[in-house]
Amino acid sequence: MIDKKWIGHAFPPLTAKVESGQLAFFAKAVSENNPVYKDENDAIVQGYERIPAPLTFGFSLNLNTPETFGYLKDMGVPIGRILHGEQKFKYYKPILEGDEITLQRSIMDIATKKEGKMELIFEEVTMNNQNKELVGKMNIIIVVRN
């Protein structure tokens, strides 16, 4: 069982650079066909200053740590027992190649289901760019199989 003391906990913010190489690799990995995500000239024609990060890329920026899901280890949750339950993004401004995004993860709630056989971790992550503009928010539900 996860210690309920984590409810309300804000993890130290993480700053991640939106690297052009990673955007290109991501586009390849998801077999992206839309040139706006691969070709700077197309991005500029479409009205962006630089190549935009795709819709779900914020989730990857938030994993830009030496250990994937290290925060779950801190909470005592083994990585082999988690599943992704729900994911929501709210968008305020595009994230662009070269941006430095600061992500702040907070644990909003922890719920116990099925007499403890399952727990749900509700997280919120805010994303601000190098100009301190709020570019987006994520709400994440992680399912833990106990």
Partner: peptide
């Protein structure tokens, strides 16, 4: 899961510019 969500996002960004999208959840 996020690979599949990335695929689903392509349906949106093939249809409208990303700057028109306010929320996306799964």
């Amino acid at each position: 899961g996020m690979l599949v969500m990335a695929y689903l996002g392509q349906v949106l960004t093939n249809w409208v510019p990303q700057t028109s999208i306010r929320e996306f959840s799964t």
